[in-house]
Design a protein around this nucleic acid. Structure first.
Length: 168
DNA sequence: TAAGTGATCTCT
DNA sequence: GAGATCACTTAA
């Protein structure tokens, strides 16, 4: 799965690099927790496009969320970047990196100012925690219960709010 | 634990 | 057009 492989890669923004520590997958037409589950709309159309493109949207009247599109063209899938080294929480992440709607539909390449680098770090399976996704209870048990959230179990990363997943 | 906040989607 | 909802955070 693509989501799991993003752990340990680096998010690069304006010359600053941050290791990705927490992600969630949203996959396919059936996934009731995904914006794509009710068909293509102006907002989610980027999820249906090519992989390697940012999907940024605005929720709760104040927060931007950063996702990377992963599926094949025509198949809606994306990974929500929920946390990076030193920062936990998807909205805090976008806020501190200055990411907003302008990044939506941009490619994750150097020219866009925001991209992902593989520096050869491999996170051992036993340091990866799998849990249900956060904040998607509305999707019903079947989909909200899917263990599609991945984070690095490392008490020395994200120690500020690392225990927040249990709070749900 | 609840309120804040506004874009987006669904239904009139 | 109106009303409900929401892949969250913060302060208490």
């Amino acid at each position: 799965m693509v989501a799991e492989n993003l752990l340990g890669k680096f998010l690069v923004r304006d010359g600053r690099t941050f290791m990705i520590t927490e992600v969630e997958a949203y996959d396919g037409f059936e996934d009731k927790a995904s914006h794509a589950s009710r068909g293509e709309t102006p907002r989610n159309k980027v999820m249906f496009g090519e992989a390697g493109v940012w999907y940024v949207y605005f929720v709760y009247g104040m927060h931007h969320m950063l996702n990377i599109v992963t599926g094949a063209e025509g198949y809606p899938a994306a990974v929500l970047i929920r946390g990076i080294e030193g920062i936990s929480g998807p909205a805090r992440l976008t806020k501190s990196l200055g990411i907003d709607w302008q990044m939506n539909e941009q490619k994750a390449i150097h020219a866009s100012g925001l991209w992902i680098e593989d520096r050869g770090i491999i996170i051992p399976k036993n340091r990866i925690e799998r849990t249900p996704r956060i904040g998607v209870a509305y999707a019903g048990e079947e989909w909200a219960g899917k263990p599609w959230r991945f984070c690095i179990k490392d008490r020395y990363l994200n120690h500020d709010k690392f225990s927040s997943p249990e709070n749900r």
